[in-house]
């Protein structure tokens, strides 16, 4: 048995006492508050002031105007279609990316994020390239008897594309985290594929899915560039709420613009609030 080595004594010094900067905390908090104030609160107040400068009158005027109603209806309609389509396909894409392995998976995984980096204006332009005059797919659309470019289908297509990643990106980590053991367990208990999906998988990812859908909805409601280019912003036909606000400002109808902006803003605020609730449920269910 070899002797243990004699241990050299380390020279130890007391660690320096922590330095106290009581004002540093308030400096940081103050910076954050003023930054957000300038960036968020100030413009918000300006819009509110503009909207209510003439009382509630403009609101009544705006929401009896068929053009405005049409614009808001269009926005909500497109957003709901985008939420539905991306809810279904986002779930399928996330499933495939997490659970299956196939050649080109990494590539597909990268492609999913494309809508995040491509400017919406370019997305609208792509729709025109495909479905505009002399577009590659125009003959197909004509054969089906529909118009895509400068019409609702084109705007839906552009919005769906722009909002594609939200559901998938929200669901992928959740799917990865719940794993397959619950599904395997349900399988050994005798449940078939559809039952397993309906009773085990879907409830397992429901809050992640809900969060993804809310993000999709918020993004679709606020979309501007893609629907502008793909739809052409024809008043009363392909003009969405954001496009209406832009035109009103352009034509110096400030009160109408502010009123519409406040309405859209209120919807966004409600969504933000709902999002926070869903996010808490989602985090709690993990």
């Amino acid at each position: 048995m070899p002797e243990p080595a004699p241990r050299a004594r380390l020279k130890l010094r007391r660690p320096p006492p922590p330095r106290e900067w009581p004002w540093a905390k308030w400096l940081i908090v103050g910076t954050v508050l003023s930054y957000l104030g300038v960036l968020v609160l100030w413009p918000l107040l300006a819009v509110l002031r503009g909207a209510f400068a003439e009382g509630l009158g403009p609101f009544a005027m705006v929401f009896t105007d068929p053009v405005v109603l049409r614009a808001f209806g269009l926005t909500v309609g497109i957003a709901l279609i985008a939420v539905t389509v991306n809810g279904v396909f986002g779930l399928i894409i996330a499933w495939v990316l997490v659970r299956d392995s196939f050649p080109g998976r990494a590539l597909l995984n990268g492609v999913i994020d494309l809508p995040f980096v491509v400017s919406p204006v370019i997305v609208g332009y792509m729709v025109l390239l495909l479905f505009g005059r002399d577009g590659w797919l125009t003959p197909l659309a004509n054969a089906l008897g529909t118009r895509v470019a400068f019409a609702l289908p084109g705007m839906v297509l552009a919005t769906v594309f722009v909002t594609l990643p939200f559901v998938t990106r929200e669901l992928m980590p959740v799917l990865r985290e719940i794993g397959t053991e619950g599904e395997d367990a349900a399988g050994t208990l005798g449940a078939g594929g559809w039952t397993v999906f309906r009773r085990i998988t879907l409830p397992g990812v429901r809050w992640g899915l809900a969060y993804g859908l809310v993000l999709t909805l918020a993004r679709a409601l606020g979309e501007f560039g893609a629907v502008l280019v793909a739809g052409g912003a024809v008043t009363g036909r392909t003009e969405t709420a954001t496009l209406f606000i832009y035109r009103s400002l352009d034509e110096r109808h400030y009160t109408e613009a502010y009123a519409a902006a406040v309405t859209l803003g209120a919807v966004s605020f409600a969504i933000l609030f709902g999002m926070e609730l869903v996010r808490r449920r989602r985090d709690a269910s993990r």
Binding site: A185, T188, I200
Partner: peptide, 20 residues
């Protein structure tokens, strides 16, 4: 045969109870 058709009871390492 798939697991569904085997009539086998299995207890997993982390139990895999359905949390909802």
């Amino acid at each position: 045969l798939p697991p569904q058709a085997r009539n086998v009871g299995m207890v997993f390492q982390n139990y895999s109870l359905f949390r909802h």
